[in-house]
């Protein structure tokens, strides 16, 4: 089974996500990163096993967008589906994300319905 990389600067958010995933009987191993640098570290070492990235937009120092843009420039990891989880649901922001990553796997707005989250990510978990 592939691993899920969760990138979010809030420990609470990450805990919440873990609860939701366990509650839906999702057994994929989860890797955690609290900022862009950690995410890069984990991605670089584990890219072969990672099947999905759950990415928060608002992060200090390096935003989710910048991280995603960089990932897309490395072909070997660019294929990994990315679901963006963000507090901002404005059309402008959605457009911005789509313009950077037209193939983005999903865009979830906080606060989200747990079922919606699970439905969005299920197709990518093998």
């Amino acid at each position: 089974m592939g691993k899920i990389l969760i990138v979010d600067d809030s420990a609470l958010e990450r805990e919440l996500l873990m609860e939701i995933l366990h509650g839906s009987a999702i057994q994929n191993e989860c890797l955690h990163a609290s900022n862009g640098d950690e995410a890069i570290e984990i991605l670089g070492r584990n890219y072969k096993d990672i099947c999905l990235i759950l990415l928060d937009w608002q992060m200090p120092e390096m935003s989710g967008l910048e991280f995603m843009e960089g990932v897309l420039k490395v072909p070997a990891v660019a294929k990994i589906p990315i679901v963006m989880v963000t507090a901002s649901g404005t059309e402008d922001n959605k457009k911005k994300v789509k313009s950077i990553n037209p193939n983005i796997a999903g865009y979830i707005i906080k606060p989200y319905e747990p079922t919606i989250l699970v439905e969005t990510i299920k197709p990518f978990l093998n």
């Binding site: 570290e41 991605l43 890219y47 960089g70 070997a76």
Partner: peptide, 16 residues
Amino acid sequence: ASQEVREAILKRMESL
């Protein structure tokens, strides 16, 4: 920044 991210990721990847 995205270029920096790219280079950082590349550095950490095992030799392909």
